[in-house]
């Protein structure tokens, strides 16, 4: 590539990167400024000193409606929802994918196409029937109700991921294990699952991000003690008692987004490594 083209290319990339980083910059700097500094300075100005006061307030004393305990309870609600929902939906997806590729039965392809339909279904469609179902199950307004909703809604995409991955694992492996005397679950645990690290990582990131960032189900199906962090953030920002504290709002927004960023930093590496390792050759 000619030097000039390369120069233009990098300039364009740099501008694009700055454009995407700008909101991040504004959020970070604003969150460590004091209110005085925000009122008197420009939005883009570099902070004169670093004050973590806003972060502390956003975490445990900012008001969300009438309750003033910050994002902390909402954060832990989200953790309590996300962890079981991600684990359950990933496991169900893995077993479904395993059955749909290695233990095909009459009609399994039809079932798969129907599940595929679930991936494209708009979320709003399920709100009413789901709330009725949760009522019957006695899970309304609870953390476990939200877990149930997320697991059910997640199965379609996790099944799709695992099914497409398992198609590339040779059937002869399952035949060989059958002849060796292993049954359905043993083959799954001992042969198939150890080969699944890359797709488990993909599904994990996908499900974690989706469920952590969910607002619609969180706002509709949660009770006063089970609101997830997205709902908490919304309430915090919309609660207007006196002055609008931009630094607290920004800190709260970053807190709400940190876990997903963290997941990308940690699992993203495995994800790429898994894809490049070309897992099943042999």
């Amino acid at each position: 590539m000619a030097k000039s083209t390369r120069f233009i290319l990098y300039t364009v990339l740099l501008i694009a990167a700055l454009f995407y980083l700008l909101p991040m910059y504004v959020m970070l700097t604003t969150s460590v400024k004091t209110m005085d500094e925000i009122r008197n300075g420009s939005l883009l100005a570099f902070p004169t000193g670093i004050s973590l006061e806003a972060w502390g307030k956003a975490w445990d004393s900012a008001c969300t409606g009438i309750q003033c305990s910050g994002l902390k309870p909402f954060f832990w609600n989200s953790v309590k929802i996300v962890v079981p929902a991600v684990i359950l939906s990933t496991m169900l997806g893995a077993i479904n994918g395993y059955v749909l590729t290695k233990w095909k039965f009459k009609g399994s392809d039809i079932i798969f196409s129907m599940m595929l339909f679930g991936v494209f279904m708009p979320l709003q469609v399920v709100l009413l029937p789901m709330s009725q179902t949760l009522g019957w199950m006695g899970l309304t307004e609870s953390v476990w109700g939200l877990v149930t909703v997320h697991v059910l809604m997640g199965i379609a995409s996790t099944t799709l991921f695992f099914r497409n991955y398992y198609v590339s694992i040779p059937d002869e492996l399952v035949k060989a294990a059958t002849l060796d005397g292993a049954g359905f679950f043993r083959i799954f645990w001992r042969i198939i699952l150890p080969l699944s690290t890359p797709i488990i990582m993909v599904t994990f990131i996908w499900q974690f991000t989706n469920i952590w960032n969910d607002f619609l189900f969180g706002v509709v199906f949660s009770g006063s003690d089970s609101k997830p962090i997205t709902v908490g953030l919304n309430n915090l920002v919309n609660t207007s008692t006196g002055v609008k504290e931009y630094n607290v709002d920004m800190a709260a927004a970053i807190i709400a987004g940190l876990p997903t960023m963290f997941i990308y930093f940690v699992a993203g590496k495995y994800f790429v490594r898994g894809l490049t390792a070309g897992a099943v050759k042999g």
């Binding site: 002849l179 005397g181 042969i191 080969l195």
Partner: peptide, 25 residues
């Protein structure tokens, strides 16, 4: 006992484990 065209060795196990897996089962 069967030998397959693609060998069907378990990719996640070493040779020893591949041979003893059936006996373990």
């Amino acid at each position: 006992a069967m030998v397959f065209q693609s060998y069907a060795l378990y990719p996640n196990m070493n040779v020893k484990k591949n041979i003893t897996f059936g006996m373990e089962m």
